[in-house]
Amino acid sequence: MNKLYIYLLFSSLFVNDTDNQFIARQGQISFFSYTSVENIEAKNNQVLSILDVEKNEIAISMLMRAFTFKKDLMYEHFNESYIESDVFPKATFKGKIIEFEKNKKSQIKIIKGEITIHGISKEIDIKTTIDKTKNGYIIEGEVDLVVKDFNIKIPPILSKNIAKVVSVKFNFQYYPYE
């Protein structure tokens, strides 16, 4: 009996996770804030994400500084006045794909997990489309985030310029992890 435990212990230590893992190094996340005064749009093309098809886990990490804006001053305001990327350089997400079927060609699933922006963590559910490709997966979807939830302060005088709910779109193309 003890031998079995020792075997289990070592196998768990040395099992190679990476066979079941896929990575996206150039994931895309964009967000949109539409108001009657101003439309703000930004895009990040360097989002990192990792997908574990055995444990049905997914993790996303990105640098806030990697967002690009149409107007350069917006980039500065976003990083310095709102998201404070000097203090909170990253936004992350980790979660589980509910009832993920790793061999299905196309599926719509819910990802349940925890998102962290501006140092504030929040539980969210995201509806996603997962497609299997030749050697990986593509995950895409859209989620609405409430700006207030993440303790991002908007001065009253600018409250008409920035939407209370920002819609976030994402698209990740996963390749086998090496």
Binding site: Q21, I23, R25, L48, S49, I50, D52, E57, I58, A59, I60, S61, L63, T92, K94
Partner: peptide
């Protein structure tokens, strides 16, 4: 040893 810390090394 989570996926997130694995991603940190990918930057």
């Amino acid at each position: 040893q989570d996926l997130l810390s694995k991603l940190d090394k990918e930057y």
